[in-house]
Simulated scan of single mutants.
Amino acid sequence: MLESFLATEPQLRLVVFLGVLVVMALWELAVPRRRVEIPRVIRWTNHLALVVVDTIVLRLSFPILAVGLAVMAEDRGWGLFNIFGTPDWIALAVSVLVLDLAIYLQHVLFHAVPALWRLHRMHHADLAFDVTTGLRFHPLEILLSMGIKLAVVLALGPPAVAVLIFEVLLNATAMFNHSNIRLPRLADRLLRLIVVTPDMHRVHHSIRPEETNSNFGFNLPWWDRLLGTYKAQPTDGHEGMTIGIEQFRTRRDLWLDRMLVQPVKGPASGYPINRETAKKR
Rank of each mutant, 00 (worst) to 15 (best):
A73S: 15
R76C: 10
G77L: 12
G77F: 13
W78Q: 14
G79S: 11
L80M: 12
N82H: 11
N82C: 07
N82D: 07
I83K: 13
F84R: 08
F84I: 13
G85T: 09
G85N: 11
T86E: 11
P87C: 09
P87L: 06
D88H: 15
W89I: 15
W89C: 11
I90H: 08
A91D: 13
A91C: 13
A93I: 15
V94Y: 04
V94F: 07
L97R: 06
V98K: 06
L99W: 13
D100R: 01
D100L: 06
L101F: 15
L101K: 07
A102W: 07
I103A: 14
Q106S: 09
Q106E: 12
Q106N: 09
V108D: 07
L109C: 09
L109I: 08
A112D: 01
V113Q: 04
P114T: 02
P114G: 02
L116M: 09
W117M: 00
L119F: 03
H120T: 01
H123W: 00
H124C: 06
A125G: 06
D126L: 01
D126V: 02
A128G: 15
A128K: 01
A128N: 14
F129Q: 05
F129D: 04
D130V: 03
D130A: 08
T132S: 15
T133N: 09
G134V: 08
F137L: 05
F137Q: 05
F137Y: 14
L140E: 04
L140V: 10
L140T: 05
L140R: 06
E141Y: 06
M146Y: 13
M146F: 13
M146K: 12
G147M: 05
I148R: 07
I148L: 13
I148W: 08
K149W: 07
L150D: 08
L150Q: 10
L150I: 10
V153K: 03
L154Y: 15
